[in-house]
Every structure is written in structure tokens, then in C-alpha cells.
Simulated scan of single mutants.
Amino acid sequence: MKSTIKTFAIALLAMTTNAFAIGGPNDNFHGAVHASGTYFATPPSDSWANVNAQNSVKAAFGEFDGETFVTLIAYDKQTDIKLDFKTAIGEGAIKMVVVNSQDEVVYTKTFAKSGSVETTLTLDVYEEYKVRFIGNQAVGAYTCTWTQQ
């Protein structure tokens, strides 16, 4: 009985956190902003791990030479978000690029070493934005968090 309760508690925790690792879509609703991802434009290396939550994505990698992204869509109204991006880079570089549905660059920042940046973006209603993470022989980790303003 005790192991059944423990198994049920673990399963319930896994379902309520809406988090997963190692890629694939994960749809989360948080207020008026819908987040989906992580998606891979190029397959990750074996040394890749990521976790998505309702308002963030975290990734760690031994070798990242490619692209991954999450999508954000504002429902019901135009919405301002604060985007907070932190990196811990040991080698190579990582670039964060935000593009709108017309593939126009809304924001970009490149890190060749560890650092962080915060910016505020306005998401137009029902427009899909991609937050792209592009690795260039990068070793390290990143965290990207979005918060409605």
C-alpha cells in the first residue's frame, strides 16, 4: 500500500509540473501567453538535456552546434513580456534570436562567455514568436524565462 501511494504521488507530481526532458513539444498555458517547445531545427547531440516549465526553458549541453526553439503566442490581447536569458558558456558561443511570424528579427544577443540579459518584448495578439537558441560549438547551459508584465 505504501509503495502504491508513493508511486501515485510521483505520477501526480510529474503530471502537475508540466515539465519534460530531452525535447519534444510541451504545451503550457500561463495567462494569455501560450508557450510550446522545445523543438529542434537540427538534432541535438547525445550530451543534450533540457527541461521546460510553464514560463521557462533550461538546457545543458556538452556540445551544441545547431538550433532549438520555443514558440510563444499571446491570446486575447497584445501582451508585454520580460525575457530573461542567462548563459554559462565554457566554450564556443550561443545566440538567442526572437523572430515574429514573418521571420523578422525582433531581438538578438550573442554570448561568447557566461552572461545574462533582460529585455521587454511586446507580443502581438495571435502572432507566433520563436525564441531561437543557436549554438556554435558551445559547451555549457542556458536558462530563458518569460514573464507577463
Rank of each mutant, 00 (worst) to 15 (best):
M1G: 15
M1I: 06
K2R: 10
I5L: 11
K6H: 05
I10Y: 06
I10K: 10
L12N: 07
L13M: 08
A14M: 06
M15A: 15
M15H: 09
T16I: 07
T16E: 02
T17C: 10
F20D: 04
G23D: 07
P25K: 03
D27K: 12
N28W: 00
G31Y: 04
V33E: 03
S36G: 13
Y39T: 07
Y39F: 15
A41W: 06
P44T: 01
S45H: 06
W48P: 10
A49C: 11
N52R: 00
A53N: 04
Q54P: 09
S56E: 04
V57Y: 01
K58Q: 10
A60L: 00
D65K: 06
T68S: 14
V70C: 08
T71H: 05
Y75D: 14
T79K: 01
D80F: 03
I81G: 04
F85N: 02
F85S: 03
K86M: 08
A88W: 00
A88N: 14
E91W: 05
G92Q: 05
I94G: 04
K95M: 14
V97W: 03
V99I: 14
N100K: 02
Q102C: 10
D103L: 11
E104N: 14
V106P: 03
Y107H: 11
K109G: 09
K109D: 12
T110A: 07
F111S: 01
K113M: 13
G115W: 00
G115D: 08
V117F: 01
T120L: 11
L121Q: 01
D124N: 15
Y126T: 14
Y126K: 15
E127D: 15
E128T: 14
K130V: 10
K130M: 11
V131I: 15
F133S: 07
I134E: 11
N136Q: 14
N136M: 08
Q137G: 14
A141S: 14
Y142G: 04
Y142S: 08
T143F: 06
T143R: 01
